[in-house]
Nucleic acid binder design. Structure first.
Lengths: 136, 136
DNA sequence: TCGGCATTGCTATAATCAACAACAATTGTT
DNA sequence: AACAATTGTTGTTGATTATAGCAATGCCGA
């Protein structure tokens, strides 16, 4: 079948993102995580005591939608909240959360390595800069 | 805020796809279209009398989910169905549909051009081949 | 030619996700 | 002190995708 769409970078971008998302999600699911959760854990690991709002801002997740995400992480015992002032609360990883993150990070880094390996060598180092230009 | 995620191509891929999707969707919405609809129209333009199954296969859309998509295109008077045999039906653009596609294609090609323009020249020609390697 | 298998188009449903509006409480700003 | 902005919520919605199942039909090998 003739497919005129495949010559569009934007189309390829969506298809590639979808395909890779499905694959990574499957691996993370084995340890009860989704990509968003892992992103939040990573961000909290690098920025302890950040607020839910700040994390959401960084990940482009609305405050309202952070609520169930954080609830899940808290219920799992991976993060803890400590009041900063009357309205803000700092989030940080628990020891348990740090341990989980270590395993998740391994999954992710393995996956990212595989991703780059799929890209022909002559294009490889261009991928990240090109993508960054599209959203940063 | 320190963001360890930004060094991952997979993450950048998802963010870039999401960002660009939002932008293109906004433009297509002005003419009552979504990206999937436009994709289907393009595929039908290049492959008249394809079946719903074949189109779905090409776009990775399940047969069940093609139904409401095609219904919308048919209700809008953009495609027509003609029986091939007892169980299959060929889809093709109506004149109206071809006209709509012409306008949609302009939106898309303008957008794709802008997309590439955002990418620094030295990375530009690497984008499509790199993305293709990730899903094709 | 016939029997089984695959395909097609479809219904119906469930799960997930992101967007939106609104709110009370609190903080910051002038 | 008054006003504006921020925070963490609740509740709801629409859109999207996945899943299972079904009747009708076409295809292919014995």
């Amino acid at each position: 079948m003739r497919d005129p769409l495949t010559r569009y970078p934007g189309y390829a971008l969506r298809r590639a993102a979808h395909a890779t998302t499905v694959q990574l999600s499957a691996r993370l699911a084995e340890m009860g995580l989704k990509q968003v959760h892992t992103s939040i854990l990573m961000l909290l690991d690098a920025n302890p005591d950040s607020t839910a709002s700040a994390i959401g801002r960084q990940l482009d997740i609305q405050r309202a939608n952070m609520v169930p995400l954080l609830k899940k992480l808290e219920d799992a015992g991976w993060i803890a909240r400590t009041p900063i002032d009357g309205k803000s609360q700092g989030l940080r990883l628990t020891d348990n959360g740090r341990e989980t993150l270590t395993r998740a990070r391994k999954v992710i880094e393995d996956f990212e390595r595989e991703l780059l390996a799929r890209v022909p060598a002559e294009h490889r180092e261009h991928l990240l800069p090109a993508l960054d230009a599209l959203w940063r």
